[in-house]
Design a protein around this nucleic acid. Structure first.
Lengths: 218, 218
DNA sequence: TATTTTATTCACTATATAGTGAATTTTTTT
DNA sequence: AAAAAAATTCACTATATAGTGAATAAAATA
């Protein structure tokens, strides 16, 4: 981005290398985020994690926010975009099967369970209204819309609001994971930190999708 | 709690009154919580809101945490406990109707939408693992268990996990409200900050409950 | 009204944090 | 190897925050 292309002098010592240091700093953001959450993201902590002097934050990124933003924009949080998961779905332009939809939600559930940084980011998104966090939401919405292009028509003549139902499902997945990871305690008597609890939520996701696809409403 | 019952001298001037001041301080916690969220809960801000000197926090409550804890424990966050909502449900010891269950969830949804402090507290609960926040979750679980005593048997011979489904529903409600209030943006194309968006979620809650009660799974 | 006691404020300490500019050390060029 | 330039650290400033103890002002008691 801010490459001095005219550069008469370059960089690459064993001890000093601007680009290598910048990469270390960006990676440190992720490590701190995982270990302490977004409230732990300050210059001293990040610098200590990267093993450099904190003043480099301003020398190389202009501000602490810029450095953090750099990390967020570089990481691909919606891995399922690239994963088979959604690509498979999007090839079925003529309609979507119940199992595909279920599988997609299961994938999202597992991805969030496995990704501690994503958990911290989701929490942050719902805690503070920052531009770069909103961009993440928007990105997810964009991917979602691709899917709804296929699903919406399938539910056109149903009296179910499939978007509303999926909104509750996805939001439910998000909250349950966050509650389980931070709070640890039960939710409706279910403990997400046990294999049994996880499985119950997985099954319930499938059950709701199954019911919706059977379009049985009175 | 820490009343000097032996008290030879009391308090009640126009300008100075310990008890009145303590009440003002506790109320200020709620105001700050609503205006700035839990991260805004520091002595200076609370003292300014109460119109007193910040040192009184330690004089009267021992620590900032104690003052905050006092506020949390005094307020009744699960209003629906007292409300008709759940009491009506609990009288039907022989079974629960679909409309009752729907109504109960609608009530919870509306209560959270209307109560800014509760929103801040729910966010806090999922952000930090504090004892007094866990107590709140536990309290909700306890109330929930009362309800499940009635519902569990109704779904005994169903192949649906009603607790799992309700967990996703309730968690979904929580997350959608938090997302809507902080982030403002869409979620599955639905904007919770519009009457239409609110209504779609209300309807979707009912639809899921309706499907579950029809026990239609293959 | 003078004295005692209680309520409240004031003036501090200690620590953390965003940010700056000069000094220093390493690398590159001559 | 010396000079120039780039990379990195050091030593600051300024502001915020939890917490403390002495000073002061208002009530209550004698």
């Amino acid at each position: 981005m801010e490459e001095e292309s005219q550069g008469r002098k370059r960089t690459s010592g064993k001890l000093r290398d601007k680009e290598r240091t910048k990469v270390k700093m960006i990676q440190a953001v992720g490590k701190v985020l995982m270990k302490k959450g977004y409230t732990g993201l300050n210059a001293s902590t990040i610098a200590k994690e990267a093993g450099i002097d904190k003043s480099l934050v301003w020398t190389y990124f202009g501000s602490l926010d810029n450095l953090i933003e750099e990390y967020i924009s570089q990481r691909d949080f919606w891995k399922f975009k690239a994963a088979d998961s959604i690509n498979t779905l999007l090839t079925f332009t003529d309609g979507l099967k119940e199992e595909d939809m279920s599988g997609f939600l299961q994938f999202q559930f597992q991805a969030l369970l496995d990704d501690e940084v994503l958990q911290r980011i989701m929490l942050w998104s719902v805690s503070e209204n920052r531009a770069f966090l909103r961009h993440l939401s928007d990105e997810r919405e964009l991917i979602g819309e691709e899917m709804f292009k296929i699903i919406d028509p399938q539910f056109k003549n149903s009296n179910l609001d499939i978007r509303g139902i999926l909104a509750i499902l996805v939001a439910g997945i998000y909250y349950l994971v966050l509650h389980g990871k931070t709070n640890g305690s039960l939710f409706c008597g279910i403990d997400l930190n046990t294999p049994d609890g996880e499985q119950r939520i997985r099954d319930s996701i499938s059950q709701i999708i199954n019911m919706a696809f059977k379009k049985t409403i009175t």
